[in-house]
Computed example of a mutant assay.
Amino acid sequence: MQIIYAMHQSGSEDLEKEEKFLFSSLESIQDLYLIVVSTLIEIKKKEEVFLEKASKKHLATAEDLKPNRKFIANKVLQFLEDNNSISIALENRKINNWSQNDDLILIILDEIKKSAIYQNYLADTSSSFEADKKFVTDIFTELIASNEKLYDYLEDFRITWVDDIPLVNTSLLKQLKHIEEHNEKSFSVLPLYKDAEDKDFARDLFRKTVLNENDLAKEYIDRTPNWDPERISEVDTIMLKMAICEFLKFPSIPIKVTINEYLEIAKEYATPKSSIFINGILDNLVKDFQKTDKLKKTGRGLM
C-alpha cells in the first residue's frame, strides 16, 4: 500500500524500480530485528567492560573489586550472545550499528541500572533460568522496546522502519519468552518469509494491483454514489483496489481474511471513517460478485 501510494505521489511508472524498493524495504525488516536483538547482547558486553575497568581503578572500592555480577551472568543474555543463529545472521547482514553508536547502548544500560527492575533483580540472591528470562523480558518490554532514544535512532536510520518497530518488538518478545535452557534451537533468527509463496504473494499483489488499477477502480466507482470520487482519500482508493485484487485474482485467500486485513490497515493508516466506508463498499462488492459468479475461490471455507 505504501509503495503504491509513493508511486502515485511521485508519478513514477517504473514498476521494476518500485518493486526493487518494495523488496529492499521488506528485507530491511530483518536488519531492524537483528539490531534490536543485538541491543540485548551489547548492553551485557558494555557492563562487562565497565566492571573490568572498575576493578582496575587505582583507588578501587570493595564493590569495584567484588561487584555483583548477576546481570552479566544472566543465563538468557549469555544464551543470546552464544547463539549461532544470531551470530551468523549479524555477520551475514553486516550488522555493526553499536560499534559505531555505543553511546546509545551506554544510555540504555544506565537507564536499566537505575530501574527498580534491575535493583530488585540484583537484590534477589536466588538464581534460576526462569527468573533470568523474566528479568530480560521485563527490561526489554519496559526499558528497551519503549526507549524513545532507541526509537528515534531507528527511525532516523531508516524511515520505513517506523511501522515495523512494533512488529519486530512484539515478535522478539514472544521469542524471548520461549527460550529454553540448554536448547539453542529454542531461539533462532526469524526468517523474513514463511516460504517462497509468501515472497511471491508480495510481488504478485503489488504487480497485479498496479497493472490493473483502472479496471479495479471501475469495480467500486459506481458503488459510491454518496461519495464524491475526488474527495475519497487516495489511501482509501488504494486499499479498495488491493482488496478487490485479492477478491478476483487470489483464489486461495478467503474473503473474510481480505476484508478483515484491510479494515485493520484502514484503522491504522486512514481516516476515522475509512474503515466504515471500506467495509461497506467491500461488503456490497462481495454480494454482487457472488450473484454474478465472479468470485472463483478454491478450498474449504474460503467464501
Rank of each mutant, 00 (worst) to 15 (best):
Arg93Lys: 14
Lys297Phe: 03
Ile259Cys: 13
Leu216Phe: 02
Pro67Lys: 11
Ile43Phe: 05
Leu40Phe: 08
Lys66Gly: 05
Glu19Cys: 07
Leu143Arg: 09
Lys56Tyr: 00
Ala243Cys: 10
Val286Ser: 11
Leu295Tyr: 12
Leu143Gln: 04
Ser10Cys: 07
Ala145Met: 11
Asp288His: 07
Leu302Pro: 06
Lys174Val: 02
Val168Met: 07
Glu81Ala: 15
Ser28Pro: 02
Ala145Phe: 13
Asp222Ser: 15
Leu65Ala: 09
Lys134Trp: 00
Tyr269Lys: 15
Glu52Arg: 13
Leu15Ile: 15
Ile221Lys: 14
Glu268Trp: 04
Asp204Tyr: 05
Asn84Trp: 09
Val76Gln: 07
Glu111Lys: 15
Ile4Tyr: 08
Pro254Ile: 00
Asn260Arg: 13
Ala62Lys: 12
Val136Glu: 00
Leu32Pro: 07
Tyr153Val: 04
Asp293Ala: 12
Leu172Arg: 01
Ile107Lys: 13
Leu34Lys: 03
Asn147Met: 08
Asp288Leu: 09
Ser128Cys: 00
Ala123Tyr: 08
Lys114Tyr: 11
Asn147Ser: 02
Ile232Ala: 02
Tyr121Gly: 00
Val257Arg: 14
Glu181Tyr: 07
Lys94Phe: 13
Asp283His: 15
Lys57Ser: 06
Lys296Met: 09
Gln100Thr: 11
Phe157His: 12
Leu26Ala: 04
Asn279Cys: 12
Pro225Arg: 06
Ile95Phe: 00
Asp82Gly: 07
Ala270Ile: 06
Leu90Val: 00
Ser25His: 07
Asp138Glu: 15
Ile88Arg: 15
Asn260Phe: 10
Thr271Gln: 10
Ser274Ile: 03
Phe21Ala: 13
Val168Ser: 07
Tyr262Cys: 06
Gly301Val: 01
Ile255Glu: 13
Ile255Gly: 08
Ser186Met: 03
Asn214Cys: 10
Cys245His: 06
Tyr193Trp: 06
Lys70Phe: 09
Glu155Cys: 00
Thr292Asn: 15
Ile88His: 06
Leu285Lys: 00
Ala243Thr: 11
Ile29Asn: 12
Trp227Gln: 02
Lys56Trp: 02
Lys20Gln: 02
Glu213Leu: 12
Glu42His: 14
Met1Glu: 01
Asn214Gly: 13
Tyr151Ser: 13
Lys114Phe: 11
Leu295Cys: 07
Ile41Asn: 09
Pro254Gly: 06
Val286Trp: 08
Lys53Trp: 10
Leu104Gly: 06
Gly280Phe: 06
Lys256Gln: 14
Phe289Lys: 02
Glu48Ser: 11
Gln290Phe: 05
Ile281Arg: 04
Lys185Tyr: 04
Lys287Ala: 10
Phe247Lys: 02
Glu142Lys: 14
Ile72Lys: 03
Leu216Asn: 00
Ile232Tyr: 03
Leu285Thr: 05
Leu192Phe: 01
Ile112Phe: 00
Val36Gln: 13
Gln119Asn: 08
Asp156Leu: 09
Ile72Ala: 05
Leu263Ile: 12
Tyr269Leu: 13
Thr258Leu: 08
Gly299Ser: 09
Asp31Gln: 01
Asp138Arg: 02
Asp64Pro: 03
Arg300Cys: 10
Val235His: 03
Ser275Arg: 11
